[in-house]
């Protein structure tokens, strides 16, 4: 069998006495769309930051794209894209300038960079807005742009932390279409969300409760296991016992 693209083994992060992510173990296969669910404060962002090489694990191990996140974080970074929970393109730069900058720092150079920029703008139908400041775009457009920028350098994996927070269902649907097309190109998608309809779109879903991984399976089998009609019910059953939350 092919080596999993993400392997986490008892991955743990402590902040002082507090265990934000508690010994989570799981694999993600290449090309998978992996949903990473959990209530607020469950430890999703903390886990994702460890997988991205942004935060060093307190204990346990994880390999991402073949590299150990603790010992080779910069190699991991070379192979992934990341869209953080906070919106993080430069608002005072234009759409085109953001694309150029992020493409540039991932090592894309001009003929290729220019082509990619044109393609991206065309795919998002943002040609008319290329010279607009990103800050002036509606949130939904910003998110689609941020996602497209995160995969501009054709990473093996893209990590998305609540990428569709605060937008309408129609825009979320458009966003997921982009996600599917990225997955179709072989990019593994690791995504956290609060929307259970989005969880249904994932190949597999994990649910974190208080830093631990409480469940991990396909949406269908999760529903069977918990005798639930929808992912909403599954989530509710599991998250009910959570101590944390805001």
């Amino acid at each position: 069998m092919e080596q999993p693209i993400i392997q986490a083994d008892k991955l743990t992060k402590r902040f002082g006495d507090f265990v934000a992510t508690d010994a989570i173990t799981f694999d993600v296969a290449r090309g998978e769309i992996f949903g990473f669910l959990g209530a607020n404060g469950a430890g999703k962002t903390t886990a994702m930051r460890m997988l991205c090489g942004l935060s060093t694990p307190s204990s346990g191990r994880a390999h991402v794209a073949g590299f150990d996140v603790a010992t080779h974080p910069e190699d991991v970074k070379q192979n992934i894209g990341y869209m953080s929970q906070k919106f993080s393109l430069y608002e005072n730069l234009t759409v085109a300038e953001n694309i150029t900058f992020f493409g540039g720092i991932y090592g894309l150079r001009n003929p290729v960079l220019r082509d990619k920029r044109e393609q991206l703008l065309a795919r998002l139908e943002l040609e008319h807005a290329a010279d607009k400041r990103v800050g002036s775009l509606p949130l939904g457009w910003k998110q689609k742009l941020a996602f497209s920028v995160a995969i501009l350098h054709d990473p093996k994996i893209v990590f998305l932390d609540e990428p569709t927070g605060g937008v309408d269902p129609f825009t979320r649907r458009q966003f997921w279409n982009l996600l599917y097309s990225a997955a179709g190109q072989g990019i593994t998608v690791f995504v956290t969300t609060h929307y259970m309809d989005e969880a249904e779109y994932c190949h597999r879903v994990s649910i974190m409760v208080d830093g631990r991984m409480a469940a991990l399976d396909t949406p269908r089998r999760l529903k069977e296991t918990y005798g639930a009609a929808s992912m909403d019910d599954v989530f509710y059953t599991l998250a009910r016992g959570a101590q944390r939350g805001e």
């Binding site: 990341y82 953080s84 430069y90 720092i105």
Partner: peptide, 11 residues
């Protein structure tokens, strides 16, 4: 603003 995360996660 949070843009530093995007720099830190890049190579």
């Amino acid at each position: 603003v949070g843009t530093i995360e995007q720099i830190n996660v890049s190579p």
